[in-house]
Simulated scan of single mutants.
Amino acid sequence: MSQKPSTRPADPRFSSGPTKKRPGWELAALSGAPLGRTHRGGIPKARLAEAIERTGAMLEIPDDYRVIITPASDTGAMEGAMWSLLGARGVDVFSCDEFGRRWLIDARDELKLSDLRLFEAPFGVAPDYDEADFSRDVIFTWNATSSGVRIPDGDWIPANREGLTLCDATSAAFAMNLPWDKLDVTTFSWQKCMGGEAQHGIAVLSPRARKRLAEHKPAWPVPRILQWFEAAAEDSKMFEGSTINTPSLLATEDYIDSLKWAMREGGLEGLVARTDANFEALADWVESCDWIDYLTADPATRSHTSITLKFSGKALEGKSEEERWAVSRKMAALLDREEAAFDVAPHPKAPAGLRIWCGPTVDTDDVRALGPWLDWAYHEAISELV
Rank of each mutant, 00 (worst) to 15 (best):
T55L: 00
S189N: 05
A277T: 13
G353M: 01
P5D: 08
E321V: 00
K211S: 10
A173C: 12
G24C: 05
L374S: 05
C358R: 04
T7W: 06
T170F: 11
V91F: 09
K260Y: 12
S236W: 14
E79G: 00
H347E: 06
V367L: 03
S84Y: 10
R368M: 04
D235V: 03
G359A: 03
R329C: 05
D168E: 06
I68E: 00
W180P: 15
E131Q: 14
D11V: 09
D257A: 09
R37I: 02
E269H: 15
I244G: 06
F229E: 08
L334P: 10
G313Y: 08
L178F: 07
V125H: 12
A121M: 05
A332S: 15
M331H: 07
Y255R: 01
E322P: 15
S306C: 12
A203K: 05
M263R: 12
Y294H: 12
H216I: 01
L250S: 10
D109W: 11
A144G: 07
E50T: 13
A345M: 05
L250G: 08
E338I: 02
L178Y: 10
G270W: 11
I61T: 11
W220R: 03
G80T: 14
F94T: 05
T252D: 00
N245K: 12
W325Y: 14
R324W: 05
F229W: 10
G56K: 12
R8P: 07
A28L: 06
E53W: 03
S16Q: 08
A57D: 15
D128H: 08
V125G: 01
E322F: 11
P9C: 03
T170N: 05
W25E: 01
L27M: 08
E317P: 13
W103D: 04
A49G: 14
A341Q: 11
A107E: 08
A333D: 14
A297H: 14
Q191D: 15
R136S: 11
L271V: 04
L27E: 15
T141Q: 11
R40G: 11
R355Q: 15
K211T: 15
G80D: 07
I244E: 06
P152T: 09
A173F: 14
P127M: 00
L316D: 10
E384C: 04
A345P: 00
K310Q: 13
A57G: 10
A326Y: 13
A377V: 11
Y255I: 00
A341T: 07
D254I: 00
W357V: 02
R355A: 09
A333L: 07
D115R: 06
T170Y: 10
A352H: 07
T141A: 01
L111H: 11
S303M: 03
A33H: 09
G267R: 02
H379P: 13
I151E: 03
